[in-house]
Amino acid sequence: MATKHSRAAARLMISPAVLLLLGWMIVPLAMTLYFSFQRYNLLMPGMEEWIGLANYQYFLTDPAFFDALINTLLLVGGVLVITIIGGIFLALLLDQPFFGQGVVRILVIAPFFVMPTVSSLVWKNMFLNPVNGLFAHAAKALGLQPYDFFAQAPLASIIGIVSWQWLPFATLILLTALQSLDQEQLEAAEMDGAGPLSRFFYIMVPHLARAITVVILIQTIFLLSVFAEILVTTNGGPGTSSTNLTYLIYAQSLLQFDVGGGSAGGVVAIVLANIVAIFLMRMIGKNLEA
């Protein structure tokens, strides 16, 4: 039983973590908010002044913002669709009895551990390059014209690379959920004459629903912040065709030194991420009670 004494000790043990996270959250957030109302460019020191909502007005009416917003949605949505559908198939496959299950599982999980800069550069150069890439070699061998992926379809190429990185994560979580499915329930359904399709849709999908939700929410948090993959492949281009919100704010802050405008963008990004976060927190909070 917890005594008064142990309560005080517990509070003491928790406080360093709480204070650090509180500082980490409040100090930069307050600064971002403050800068977002300022004219503040690192190239023009001493010119700082309060300009109200002008930064937000510029940022939100900039056509690049609209492009970046659409690209962000396409990137997050595209990767989610590919990884969840692919992940369900892979989880079902890995759940079947076959020889060497452990090894195949390791092969499938591997891309998740590859750092983003490595996977992007390997894909960009050794696979998607229109002259020396393996896909170009394959196209030539088949008598086709090589395709210049990053010039013709920059965003789709990035979606492909990011999907390769996140497919293992979705697979692993869905597989874990699938393995907790009661086998007797499936057998009972089979004896009652349920075919493979109805067993999949009426027993497996409802059982996986929770895991799928978790995958969607957690991947969304990370996918909203995709950065390195864009930086080392397209730099957001051509034009803004592969610029997402994170990259746009980075470019505005650290390439154009527009602290005020970048901060306004940062606030917008925080608001958008919070909308996703609220749903995720509800899911995890419910689990805590169980």
Binding site: M31, F35, F227, I249, L254, A273
Partner: peptide, 22 residues
Amino acid sequence: LMWMLSTKMLPPVGVLVPLYLL
């Protein structure tokens, strides 16, 4: 616990500028 988790939801780019300056 939930509040700690919520700090993880903060998009890094949202605090890039102040952190860079600090």
